[in-house]
Design a protein around this nucleic acid. Structure first.
Length: 595
RNA sequence: GCGGGUGUAGCUCAGCUGGUUAGAGCGCCGCCCUGUCACGGCGGAGGCCGCGGGUUCAAGUCCCGUCACUCGCGCCA
């Protein structure tokens, strides 16, 4: 017989009755009845009940073993009597009558419960992650992660993509997030950077003629964390040669849609997967107030500036803003006349909490509009509102007034808040779409200059001609995102593979040719030796898994992960470097002043 | 860097307008229990009430500071 086991703990059924078996695993629960004792023995496949029978000489010893100790037991798989069968367990028809038992590794008293969710906080779960990982939910989430990655790989290989590894110790990139730096011992004063993404390498692989690249790529960004953002994370990184934007969508949509359909019922609920038509950036911002709209929310935003600009409308608070170039955005909330006054008051105080003066509204019930703003809007103007927003009797309309970008953004937040307060968000569905036509440039208010709004390597729509003739802020790029249920799950672009367009593109953003050469000389040179038109995208794998697992937090889908301050309390990272290490690296610390 | 929330037993939390000896559930330890499967019964241990300062006759409770965790803003091409 094998030293540790003949079967797994979730494996045994009625058909095994009578067999001598050996199981190894963790003591999940113990029920000690004095004379007879039950142990629920657990491994990754499940739980089997093991019994120490009355008068067993083993009882005195086994009684002392604590839960989460690792043991090996040997005994006969026996049928349970009719009264003692447990239909809730897959192995509930049988139990093992323990004949021999070995304590392989005793467990101290555990800091939180493993067999059940005792609500232990995240910090302690992370400190004892190996215990947390034994819990059913983490076993399931991590297994889901494995399934998703395996499925993504298979789907990419099926479409003739080749998988690559690219350098982890690489060069700092001047755009984007802060880099993690690694000091060089051999080159005093010089540093490697960990990649924020393998952007340039994947483009160089296209220049290298590999045609279709993918990688489950680790990415590193030294910016503050969020529930959906980590210092290190993984992307399904993709690049393709001789493609248009439509080719990228046609290739990647079935990959992601397929994976979601494969794992959509992970949480137990049947979930639909819907892929909606592409949405251009400007429309998304106007209708949803964000470039990553949650399309499960049926509410839409309309522009009603013209109504509040009318001479017969007296609402000064909005008028003043409109005269300064502001806009009024409105959200129709259908059939809310039965809502109590507190529904509207709560939304108003929510808006104030968000830093807005409030959230004005008009409720249409019967012949005239009601609400605090209604008296400033005469009947004719109310009719115009109804027409623009498609209002029906019983509907309310909420108003946001500000500079255009601020109004759009806040209306977007209000749209989500109103939807949730109404209980209107669709359930059990993943709604995807591609957001297209992102602007190439934007005006940076702080620096008072034109700058790239996204990826400087994106191809401007209209090419060199557009760069030469168009107002920069009106130029769109072949730059796109993929959005699901309010999360940006991918970002990508058709790249700019022509050095002369790149020079012009950087010049518009105020970068000298020398800067371009210094920072991107390697790639720019590559483009001078025959570069295929190419493009791609990168999906945030952790966010995909998070959506499928229905977790609110990325940390729930990683086996090992740092906390919100990017510290690993289990491994003690980051930690001090020794004098010798610093000396080897030619580093001296200049600590911040602690006042 | 900034703002909100939280911090009381190993874990999760209660503790009212400040008032005597700070509680509960789970866990832990001991005893009892022959069939449970969240086993049950009895008993017990365990607290710098995050830390420092202040107000007060009196502080877990109020004030100031600080630290930790968490969510968000900034940031994240």
């Amino acid at each position: 017989m094998h030293a540790y086991r003949t079967h797994m703990c979730g494996e045994l059924r009625k058909t095994h009755v009578g067999q001598e078996v050996k199981l190894s695993g963790w003591i999940s629960r113990v029920r000690d009845h004095g004379g007879v004792l039950f142990i629920d023995l657990r491994d990754k496949t499940g739980v089997t009940q093991c019994v120490v029978e009355e008068n067993s000489p083993l009882l005195a010893e086994i009684e002392k073993w604590r839960v989460e100790s690792v043991i090996t037991i040997e005994g006969k798989a026996s049928a349970r009597t009719a009264e003692t069968v447990n239909p809730k367990m897959p192995t509930g028809d049988i139990e093992i009558v323990i004949g021999k038992a070995v304590l392989q590794s005793a467990a101290d008293v555990i800091p939180f419960q493993v067999a059940e969710d005792d609500g232990a906080g995240e910090d302690i779960r992370l400190r004892y992650r190996y215990l947390d990982l034994r819990r059913e939910k983490m076993q399931r989430n991590i297994t889901l992660r494995n399934g998703v990655i395996r499925s993504l790989r298979a789907r990419m290989h099926e479409q003739d993509f080749q998988e690559f590894q690219t350098p982890i110790l690489t060069a700092s990139s001047p755009e984007g997030a802060r880099d993690y730096l690694v000091p060089s011992r051999l080159h005093p004063g010089k540093f490697y950077a960990l990649p924020q993404a393998p952007q340039q390498f994947k483009q160089l692989l296209m220049v290298g003629g590999f045609d279709r690249y993918f990688q489950i790529a680790p990415c590193f960004r030294d910016e503050d964390g969020r529930a959906d953002r980590l210092a290190e994370f993984y992307q399904l990184d993709v690049e393709m040669s001789f493609v248009t934007q439509e080719d990228v969508f046609a290739t990647m949509t079935p990959v992601v849609k397929g994976v979601f359909e494969e794992f959509a019922d992970f949480t137990g609920a049947k979930r639909k997967v819907e892929w909606l038509p592409n949405l251009d950036y400007k429309t998304a911002m106007r209708k949803y107030g964000t470039d990553k709209p949650d399309l499960r929310n049926p509410l839409e935003i309309v522009d009603v500036t013209e109504v509040f600009a009318r001479d017969d409308v007296e609402f000064k608070a909005f008028k003043g803003t409109i005269e300064k170039g502001g806009v009024v955005r409105a959200i129709r909330a259908p059939k809310v006349s039965a809502q109590p006054r507190s529904f509207f008051d709560k939304l108003n105080s929510w808006a104030q909490g968000e830093g807005a003066p409030g959230l004005g509204y008009i409720l249409f019930e019967g012949t005239e509009g009601k609400g605090p703003i209604a008296k400033f809007v005469p009947a004719a103007a109310q009719e115009q509102l109804k027409k623009i927003a498609g209002l029906e009797d019983g509907d309310a309309i909420f108003f946001v007034c500000n500079k255009e970008s601020e109004a759009a953004k806040f209306a977007g937040k209000a749209r989500d808040k109103i939807c949730d307060d109404m209980g209107n968000r669709e359930k059990d569905v993943y709604k995807f779409c591609w957001i297209v036509d992102f602007p190439m440039y934007e005006f940076d208010e702080k620096a008072q200059k034109i700058d790239f709004s996204h990826n400087p390597f994106s191809m401007p729509q209209g090419g060199l001609e557009a760069l030469e003739k168009q107002d920069p802020v009106t130029i769109d790029a072949f730059q796109y995102d993929c959005v699901c249920n309010g999360f940006e799950i991918a970002s990508g672009a058709i790249r700019n593979h022509k050095p002369e367009i790149m020079e012009k593109a950087f010049a518009i953003a105020g970068y000298e040719k020398s800067v371009l050469e210094a920072k991107f000389g390697g790639m720019l040179n590559a483009f001078r030796y025959g570069a295929p038109p190419h493009g791609g995208c990168a999906f945030g794998i952790d966010r995909l898994v998070m959506l499928l697992a229905d977790e609110p937090n990325l940390r729930e889908v990683y086996a090992f992960v740092m906390n919100g301050q990017y510290e690993d309390q289990m491994m003690q990272a980051p930690s001090d470097a020794s004098e010798q290490q610093l000396k080897d690296l030619h580093l001296k610390l200049a600590m911040p002043r602690t006042s």
